[in-house]
């Protein structure tokens, strides 16, 4: 049983930067990486991607893969291009105030993946 992105954001302490399909999309799992190949290989309609990357690569990830949601970490401030791309492709963009490890721990707990 997944969670809508809105609920997931609330439970993990993440902030919604771009709403995208946040209300209608249910997330079942997540994948975290700082490597593009990893992220590309894990895209699905129900997977949230967590990454410390803030580069043009993330823009491409959103443009090419129809990612439902991306969560940035460490209170990162994305550039306007990334925000616009997420808006255009209806990808929900979150930002977590925590580092990647703590963000993952919170997502695991919220999605009931601890066991």
């Amino acid at each position: 049983m997944g969670l809508t992105i809105d609920v997931l954001a609330k439970k993990t302490g993440a902030r919604v930067l771009v709403r995208g399909r946040a209300r209608s999309t249910e997330i079942n799992d997540f994948h975290a990486s700082d490597r593009m190949s990893d992220l590309l290989g894990r895209v699905s309609d129900t997977t949230m991607l967590i990454t410390p990357l803030l580069t043009v690569s993330v823009v491409r990830l959103i443009e090419l893969m129809d990612v439902p949601g991306v969560c940035l970490v460490n209170n990162a401030e994305p550039g306007q291009v990334l925000l616009d791309t997420a808006q255009e492709h209806r990808t929900t963009l979150l930002v977590s105030p925590f580092d990647m490890e703590e963000t993952c721990r919170r997502f695991r707990a919220a999605l009931g993946l601890d066991t």
Binding site: R35, S37, D38, T55
Partner: peptide, 13 residues
């Protein structure tokens, strides 16, 4: 690598 590339999975992917 700084941009997130160079994982060595490209061709296999």
């Amino acid at each position: 690598r700084e941009l997130g590339f160079g994982a060595g999975m490209g061709l296999a992917h």
